[in-house]
């Protein structure tokens, strides 16, 4: 079955300490875009850590999120980041991958309007 829907995945976990949540989210995101759906990954709360440019979990024995993110972007996925969540964690846009689009928190309601479903991870 092909997938024509627009899905927003709101990710509030992005750390390697709770890796299964963000890894599960990006696996699902990639499955949806691979079947033709449109996905916006909205990083908020601790989800902003998911897009850290310099992440490297080799020492933890975990796969690097950047590999999955790369697949997601290649398949046409979009990543947006809650600006408040970023700044409240002492981070700046340059700490994240270049493709991450920073957006005002209040505009999250626009994302909800633009997508048929909002899945929370």
């Amino acid at each position: 079955m092909s997938m024509k829907k627009k899905i927003m995945i709101s990710l509030m976990h992005g750390t390697y300490g709770h890796h299964d949540d963000c890894y599960g989210a990006i696996q699902l995101a990639n499955a949806i875009v691979a079947k033709g759906g449109e996905v916006t990954l909205f990083l908020r709360s601790d989800g902003v850590y998911f897009a850290m440019k310099a992440q490297n979990p080799t020492g933890l024995g975990l796969p690097n999120n950047l590999a999955e993110i790369s697949d997601f972007l290649e398949l046409g996925g979009t990543i947006k980041v809650d600006s408040n969540a970023l700044t409240s964690r002492g981070l700046e846009p340059r700490d994240l991958i270049d493709e991450a689009e920073i957006m005002d928190s209040a505009l999250a309601i626009d994302l909800i309007e633009q997508h048929e479903f909002c899945l929370t991870f």
């Binding site: 997938m3 829907k5 699902l28 499955a31 949806i32 079947k35 759906g37 479903f117 991870f121």
Partner: peptide
């Protein structure tokens, strides 16, 4: 596989996540 959930999404009117 995860694609079976994508198929569920494709036919859904509402979706809820519990986390």
């Amino acid at each position: 596989g995860l694609y079976s959930f994508v198929d569920m999404l494709a036919e859904s009117d509402r979706v809820l996540t519990f986390i």
